[in-house]
Design a protein around this nucleic acid. Structure first.
Lengths: 126, 126
DNA sequence: CTTGACCTTGCCGCTGGCGGCAGGGTTGCA
DNA sequence: TGCAACCCTGCCGCCAGCGGCAAGGTCAAG
């Protein structure tokens, strides 16, 4: 079993030691400790952290990701996506859609205001 | 000239006294003071605050809005949308578009992951 | 022995737009 | 007279995901 320390894990996953400690504090990853107190990780941690980052990049929050913990190691038992995970993902998908819709609306308003502005002065409201 | 106090202005614009003080501190609105120290506003403030809220709702920041100050009262001199205002608005529009694109991408990823998940276990990264 | 790279915990800062509270003063009205 | 509604300033909190720093411990190379 090859163990890596936090810096190496950070480099391997394209993140920072600070972020990894943050994930640990959030309960997303766990670490063994070397006799000197250093955090050490086995190589499955790499995939795990990549999965976490993937989910974060997909718009989930750390809180959301927590629900996916059982599947985060991806290849072992894990079982099907855990139902609860699916539900959370769907909810989050809805939130994302809502947020996108809202911002798109806002963008359209700004665009409209700009269009008006090119033919007079800005009249957002009146 | 009818003067209103902050509470009334808040009600008239659908916001809060706290927010109005915040706008003032950000340099977006200004107020006269009554002899007792209370803020008082003339009725143009209503349109001004509505304009501010409109721009905020359109995705601008308080900082952005500051550039539009000369046009915020909308009917007097003001002149054309001030070039600088246009540029800022365009930049902000770009930022909004970028943000929307990013989130849409994220949403699509999440959707894709979910689709995969329904036919196996979640394999975000591998 | 010393340097320097790495690690530890812990805490504050940041962005944005306020909310909320403390601890006061000022009105209007019964 | 007293209350309730309004106003003031000033400061901390919040959300999220860390960044950055302080103040220290550890270890290998030179």
């Amino acid at each position: 079993m090859a163990w890596v320390r936090i810096g190496e894990l950070a480099r391997a996953t394209g993140t920072t030691a600070r972020a990894l400690r943050h994930y640990e504090q959030a309960g997303l990853i766990c670490s063994q400790r070397a006799p000197n107190g250093y955090r050490i990780y086995d190589e499955r941690a790499v995939a795990r952290v990549r999965n976490i980052r993937y989910l974060l990049a997909a718009g989930l929050t750390l809180d959301d990701v927590r629900v996916f913990l059982p599947c985060l190691d991806g290849d072992v038992a894990a079982g099907p996506p855990s139902d609860k995970g699916l539900r959370v993902a769907l909810e989050r998908l809805a939130v994302l859609n809502e947020r996108i819709a809202y911002q798109t609306e806002a963008r359209d308003r700004l665009e409209a205001a700009l269009r008006q502005a090119t033919g007079g002065r800005i009249r957002p409201v009146a």
